[in-house]
């Protein structure tokens, strides 16, 4: 017996696809703060059968110490209050029935207060150009599993390019507080698989990125002996569980819980490994998304948390991030 495919199920898959774009935002902790380079983001996912989408999200990230290289969590200096605000507009466009492209460009505000120093700076973050191939031709959301075919997930395969539009240590900047980007191009291969048996959903998100080696001839505005630097390869993965409810007017609410892991290998300088670099972190997040019946407006909010226990991170700041976002989807 073929599965039922109703507008509710259809809407659920569309919403979850959007949320998965959001999942990158929500659960992949950005390497942020003025100490470390700022707001990169991720790729948007345009729901199947829609032609384009405008998206904007506002994220507020608070810092709560960091893990050192050995995985020990260290508190921030007394009297410090470190925050970053990111506004990330994005646009996604369907190229053909199975291909889509997107572009996002965050703007970053750093707001750091130490006992003896206050700093407020802002600037562009790193932009991301993304492409997705949808390896399915119809909605994969089902109400019940009656055959093996009903277990077929909606699979997306993609690539993205991070463009160093942010301000990095290798720009003509005065100090580390001005930094809003990492300064490197990065190519990512991305995979997203989603299976919804309404109202439940399970989503797996994997990404592997390679930074391109670059020349450096200045640091914080001072010229140095030129050298080549390449950041380490980067892996991120997340798994998300979701539950959707249909409201009285057939609007949809979706609750999503996500666990994510992010790891970046050690960088190299002139081909030699930089043992002071590389990092790893884990995060959990909870997201709530609301979609109108027509699926044209989606509003979402999320809370992303990096647990500060020893051993749950390495060489990385611990943060909490609140995000709200709105998407306008055009049929």
């Amino acid at each position: 017996m073929s599965s039922l495919k109703t507008p509710t199920c259809d809407r659920s898959q569309a919403l979850i696809a959007l949320l998965m774009g959001g999942t990158f935002f929500f659960s992949t902790p950005t390497w942020a703060a003025s100490c470390c380079g700022g707001g990169g983001a991720a790729t948007l996912v345009l729901p199947k059968f829609f032609s384009s989408m405008y998206d904007i999200s506002i994220g507020y990230e608070q810092y709560h110490g960091f893990w050192n290289k050995e995985g020990e969590h260290i508190n921030d200096p007394p009297g410090s209050d470190l925050n970053q605000l990111r506004i990330t507009p994005g646009y996604a466009l369907r190229i053909n029935p199975n291909w889509q492209a997107s572009f996002i460009l965050p703007y970053v505000w750093n707001d750091n207060q130490y006992a003896g120093l206050n700093s407020k700076t802002n600037g562009l973050g790193d932009a991301t150009l993304g492409f997705w191939y949808e390896n399915f031709d119809d909605i994969k959301c089902v109400y019940a599993v009656n055959s093996l075919e009903d277990l077929t997930p909606a699979a997306y395969f993609g690539a993205s390019l991070t463009i160093p539009t942010g301000v990095s240590p290798y720009d003509d900047v005065k100090n580390s507080f001005d930094i809003t980007g990492r300064g490197f191009y990065r190519l990512d291969a991305n995979m997203l698989m989603d299976k919804t048996v309404f109202p439940w959903g399970l989503t797996l998100n994997l990404s592997y990125g390679i930074y391109l080696e670059r020349d450096v001839n200045q640091e914080y505005g001072s010229f140095v002996e030129p050298y080549k630097r390449q950041l380490g390869n980067r892996f991120s993965g997340s798994i998300a569980f979701s539950y959707s409810t249909t409201l009285e007017k057939l609007d949809t609410l979706t609750y999503t819980f996500t666990y994510a892991n992010l790891k970046e290998d050690e960088a190299s300088i002139n081909g030699a490994t930089d043992t002071t670099s590389g990092f790893e972190t884990q995060s959990v997040s909870f997201a709530l998304a609301y979609s109108t019946m027509a699926k044209d407006w989606i509003v979402r909010m999320s809370f992303n948390h990096l647990p500060t226990n020893d051993g749950l991170g390495s060489n990385f700041p611990a943060t909490d991030t609140f995000t709200v976002g709105v998407s306008y989807v055009i049929p």
Partner: peptide, 27 residues
């Protein structure tokens, strides 16, 4: 996309240091 990029790049010339890095020794 091109228009947005041109706008941002023209407003922020520092960006070019990262988009097109230099290996010249300018010390």
């Amino acid at each position: 996309l091109l228009l947005v990029l041109i706008f941002h790049l023209s407003a922020c010339t520092d960006l070019l240091d990262d988009i097109n890095p230099s290996d010249s020794d300018r010390r």
